[in-house]
């Protein structure tokens, strides 16, 4: 039963990653893209936790913690970048890929 949930969970995470990718490509402001990247890293953490459940080994949870830390650090870096650039970051209307 847990195996079924893990399979369905992988599917759910893939759907979630698709949604955040949509926001990352479309997002009108750069803050929307950074926010989508933050959610994306948390979806990857969820994927790693599902891997740990599937293998039944605690070692994979280390990876989850590391991915969470790297995602947080990258969010901070991007937020600093947005704050430092101030108001001159409005992207052009044709919406280039994120």
């Amino acid at each position: 039963m847990v195996a079924v949930v893990v399979q369905a969970g992988i599917l759910a995470v893939v759907v979630g990653i698709g949604m955040t990718m949509y926001r990352m490509l479309k997002g009108p402001h750069i803050a929307d893209r950074v926010l989508a990247g933050d959610v994306l890293s948390l979806q990857v953490v969820a994927l790693v936790i599902l891997l740990a459940v599937d293998q039944r080994r605690a070692v994979s949870l280390d990876v989850a913690l590391m991915v969470a830390i790297v995602g947080f650090a990258s969010t901070l870096a991007f937020a600093q970048y947005i704050g430092a650039a101030g108001g001159d970051l409005q992207p052009p209307d044709e919406g280039e890929g994120g």
Binding site: A31, D62, L65, A68, A79, I82, G83, A85, G86
Partner: peptide
């Protein structure tokens, strides 16, 4: 390991959204 990850998530998620909202407001997000 789960507890450490949880503590990190409970501190990092609000701080990350706070700093992102702050810089977005400074950048003039409509």
């Amino acid at each position: 390991k789960a507890l450490l990850t949880l503590v990190f998530a409970f501190v990092a998620a609000p701080v990350g959204s706070h700093i992102l909202a702050r810089s977005a407001h400074a950048a003039g997000l409509e």
